[in-house]
Amino acid sequence: MNRVQRAVAGDTLFRGITRGFAGGIIVLFATLIIMLWQQALPSIHAFGFGFLIDSSWNPVTNQFGAWIPIFGTLFSTFLALLFAIPLSLGIALFLAELAPTWMRAPFGTAIELLAAIPSIVYGMWGLFVLSPLLADYLQPWLQDHIGGPLFLGAPMGIGMLTAGMILALMIIPFIASVTRDVFLMVPQQLKEAAYGLGCTTWEVVRDVMIPYGKKGIAGAVFLGMGRALGETMAVTFVIGNAYHLSWSLLAPGNSIASTLANEFTEADSDLYLSSLIELGLVLFLITFIVLAIAQWWLRPRKMGADQ
């Protein structure tokens, strides 16, 4: 082999190796789905589609329906987004437009550090610090002044509301930092043109920046949603871990992730384990869809391309 042949062989080999590892990621992903599917089959055969909408979860009688954890996952995520979206937009706006230049980097880092705190620490803090405060002050106030079906039950501090608040806190840094980047990508000329017409800052944001970056912002929201859906430890601490179906924000509930965290090692029958695995599969598929939509909207070449 001469020098050139060696170089070509080296290139082919190196390319092949790196391609193998990139392919390894795809194989890993495929294995994950196939394995969960296979192991969920006993439960899928036993309960069929009804698994998703049945609300009885009873290890004693081997009857498993996933609606309560699925509902809890969706409900807590919905609450989290309700709190997190306006706050994140506000933070992003502050970081991109309002804050004095010297303040932007440190403030931005501080917000992003919220994402660095481990999720179990959020859970612990939520359980020992936040929920007693909610039980003593916010929840009785909500019952006295608003009331209704949304605030039924004893104000225990733990429950859907607390889970939603903690989740919101955890996804705010993700939504805020992506939205800030989207705001920063709005061309200066567009903003200046609007300011030149006499728009106030808010009007520029509402009529220029948000419409321009709407896909990116939607992508950021879906990214946060994907995170909230699968968040485990923080939710397990504060959601209450009860098989209880209720629209009340104060009632304890359960999410798919918290059910897995609490029960997986205690599953004593094959059907029980299989049902838990099917729950995991359901969670994975829901987050997959949400995150895929997020990636679609956040594709770099697409952002603001319709302008």
Partner: peptide
Amino acid sequence: KFGATARFISDILVSAPSIVIGVFVYLL
């Protein structure tokens, strides 16, 4: 296309629920 698929899956896995990874490794 191969590269795009691997990139897409990586992006999904970055935010995938870590508890499901735990279930997967339990089975694996």
